[in-house]
Design a protein around this nucleic acid. Structure first.
Lengths: 195, 195
DNA sequence: GCGGTTATTGACCGTTCGGTCCACAATAAG
DNA sequence: CTTATTGTGGACCGAACGGTCAATAACCGC
């Protein structure tokens, strides 16, 4: 019984996310957000609140998509260990120059923004659990040594993956990045446990 | 034959660096820089140029110190492999909540600032070489398998280290961080090579 | 002490920032 | 068609931004 919205909320969140991803939070102005979304200030504020809330919405939608995609990838793989390897090597296929939005945001705002820090912490924990489940499956499938704590190995894998993504950000050439990812995958996902 | 400076350039760079480290580049205003340095705008601009140049100076002085400290640590260690292990576990001892200034800057500005990106690339390469030398020494000392390419292993170690630092940023508790760092060290620095 | 030179300070500039507000447009219900 | 309700767009705001500049202060060689 009133005027309907002329935009799709999800679509706006996506374009806005791209902007924050490219430029970071502080370096993105409201004018930038208006330009990429095609909305006026009034609409933006009425729909999402202020810049900070809009950013958090975009960030949350990002991590939700990442988690959904990760769960799907890990679940669909015939062998869990291959999915884990793919996880470590994924940063190579994707153009990784922009890095991970969550990681970028944590680096930029982690010191000053408790909400972002809290979200980062939660996201990291969830990701670890998802990877941990996959590690456990790989153990059941006999591809990883059974004695290792799945969550512990999951954390090592996730840390290594973040390191690879960051390495890609610095402009390391793709061949070197590939070799490093493979090397880490070999050492973290070998069938025998460490002495 | 003129008025001498009332401040020490290095000291100003240090305090300014702390500010950029805490708040990031964009979120640090000239007023912040004046406050922490105790200098007026004019002095700041006369001595260092604009905000961006001052930032680059502070960033360069940071990486120089890091490299000097890293070289010293790796050179002074009786056994190279212990120094490498220490490198991976170092993020735990240091309060790592702020992360690494170079990594933070790369994440915030890597997309938009070619100078920062270039500096990040160079820094990463140099760090890899320093670690690579230490890996080679560990091989000569019989603590690492001889067949491995030192530079390749160095990149894996550095990526893992960056991942650990980032993990610390997200607020993971110190015990978990310790365990993860040890786990990665065990797997990357074991005496036998991967199958 | 004097003159030349550089450092310091803070007033000042135009611009851009995030955010508010209001006149107007578009819809649905009656 | 009228009316109530919500969405839209842009004018507008005060504050803060990065940066400039001129007046003043402090020093060195002479």
């Amino acid at each position: 019984m009133a005027r309907p919205r002329a935009f799709d909320e999800k679509q706006v969140l996506n374009t806005v996310r791209e902007q924050f991803w490219d430029a970071g939070y502080a370096a993105t102005s409201l004018e930038d957000l208006m330009r990429v979304s095609g909305l006026g200030k009034g609409s933006l504020y009425a729909a999402f609140g202020d810049k900070h809330q809009l950013f958090l919405r975009a960030l949350r939608s990002y991590t939700e998509e990442i988690h959904a995609s990760l769960r799907r990838t890990l679940a669909e793989a015939p062998r869990a260990v291959d999915a884990l390897r793919e996880l470590l090597e994924a940063p190579i296929h994707a153009r990784v120059r922009r890095g991970c939005l969550m990681a970028n945001s944590t680096c930029e705002l982690g010191n000053a923004d408790p909400e972002v820090l809290d979200h980062a912490h939660r996201t990291y924990e969830t990701t670890t659990e998802v990877i941990g489940d996959c590690v456990a499956r790989a153990q059941r499938e006999g591809d990883l040594p059974a004695g290792v704590d799945p969550m512990a190995l999951a954390r090592a894998i996730l840390a290594a993956q973040q390191g690879i993504v960051f390495m890609g950000r610095t402009g390391v050439d793709s061949a070197t990045l590939t070799a490093t990812a493979r090397s880490l995958a070999d050492q973290l996902l070998s069938a025998r446990s460490v002495d």
